[in-house]
Computed example of a mutant assay.
Amino acid sequence: MSTDQAGSTSVNPFVTESARRALFALRAFPTGLVAFGAAASGRHRRAARWQLDAAEPGTSDIHSPSWWRIFTHSALSLSIGAVAWFVAFLSLVAAFRGVFYGLITDDSYRYSWGGPTLAGAWLVHLVLGLLLVPVALCILRVIGSLLVGLAQRLLGDGGPAWAVPVSLVLAAAGALLFRSWLHQI
Rank of each mutant, 00 (worst) to 15 (best):
A75G: 03
F100N: 00
P116G: 05
L140C: 01
E17L: 13
V133Y: 07
G32N: 06
Q51L: 15
S74T: 05
A171H: 05
L76K: 03
L23C: 15
I139N: 07
L137A: 14
F36S: 01
G32S: 06
E56P: 14
A39Y: 00
I143P: 07
R27L: 14
I70F: 10
H63K: 14
L140Q: 06
L78R: 08
R43H: 11
H125I: 01
G98L: 05
S66Q: 08
P65W: 01
L118T: 06
S108A: 10
V142G: 15
F29G: 01
G7H: 09
L26M: 13
H125F: 03
V142T: 15
W68V: 06
R97I: 08
A163N: 07
R69Q: 11
L33H: 09
P30Q: 07
V87T: 08
E56I: 14
A40R: 06
R49Y: 06
V142M: 15
G102D: 05
P57M: 12
F86W: 03
S79W: 02
G114N: 00
A95T: 04
Y111P: 13
L140I: 04
H125E: 00
G174L: 03
S2F: 08
A39K: 01
A163V: 08
A82Q: 08
L132A: 07
L177R: 07
A172P: 11
G144A: 12
R20Q: 10
A151K: 02
Q152R: 14
L123A: 03
A82E: 10
A38D: 02
H183A: 15
A47F: 11
N12S: 12
D61R: 09
G129N: 01
A173C: 08
A6K: 15
L126F: 00
A94Y: 04
V99I: 15
S74F: 02
G115Q: 04
Y111M: 12
F29T: 00
I62C: 00
R20G: 05
G115C: 03
P134N: 09
L147Y: 02
S66G: 08
L33W: 06
S10E: 14
G159T: 04
F29P: 02
F36C: 05
L131N: 08
F96Q: 10
L176S: 09
L131M: 13
G7C: 11
F29H: 07
L131T: 12
S60G: 12
I139P: 06
G149E: 11
D107N: 14
G174S: 06
L52R: 07
T72C: 14
A75N: 06
H63L: 13
L92D: 03
G32F: 01
T72A: 15
I143N: 02
Q152S: 13
